[in-house]
Amino acid sequence: MNRAIIDVAAPLVLIAVLVAGWEAACRIMAIPGYFLPPPSEIARAAVAGAPVLFESAWNTLFMALKALVVASVLACGVALVVALNQTLEKAVQPLAVALQVTPVIAIAPQVVIWAGLDHPERAIVTLAVIVAFFPIFSGALTGLKATDPDLERLFDLYGATRWQRLWRLRIPSSVPFVLEGHKVAGGLAVIGAVVAEFVAGSGGAQGLAWRILESSNRLQTARTFAAVIVLAIMGALLHAALRHAERAILKRLRGR
């Protein structure tokens, strides 16, 4: 069989086997639906709740995307300023690391209060920005400093000014690193948004995390599973979209 077909079929077969085993186990052992619903029940819940789930997924995705845009602008801006000044870099680096290693869940309740309890979406976007900031910042800074030393020598030879070096050498060199940072940050922004929604714990934002909370509080376990699956698919699609964009941009940049 064709290698490509096997590559696509193998994970699908594994999923099918697992789902079939799950379905059989639930039926044979008569497991109660609130404890572990069989896949067929989850599918029914997903179909029945599809409009609400998609709307919630869109809300979560939209907040994550807003956060990604804000984080991108902030992180690239700070990286650019910091890359120009070594003292500033030394000053900023520990703060950036502290921000990254602090679990977002630990600061979420306070951010929710600051944002105002009536505006959970502000807190959600803010928290998602916080988690999405670091990978982009770190990628941009690494990229701005990872210029080819031979090209640096060439710019020395032609007496390039600091600005020329920045615009013509360092920024273009950083593009692959910045794109990689966005790919990681995209996934993190979704996680940040979901965590923040959980902490906000109100229906104001109407995201997927709220659907999960709501249905698990009501012991509608099948619906909870359906929401989690939609969340996973959404994350995977966002990652795929960012990876696709990364490849397209790099291809355009390098000509192949």
Binding site: D148, D150, L151, R153, L154, L157, R168, L169, P172, V175, L253, R254, G255
Partner: peptide, 13 residues
């Protein structure tokens, strides 16, 4: 100077 490697900017024509 012409260096041992072409030393071209990969993003530029």
């Amino acid at each position: 100077v012409v260096f041992q490697s072409p030393n071209l900017m990969p993003w530029a024509s």
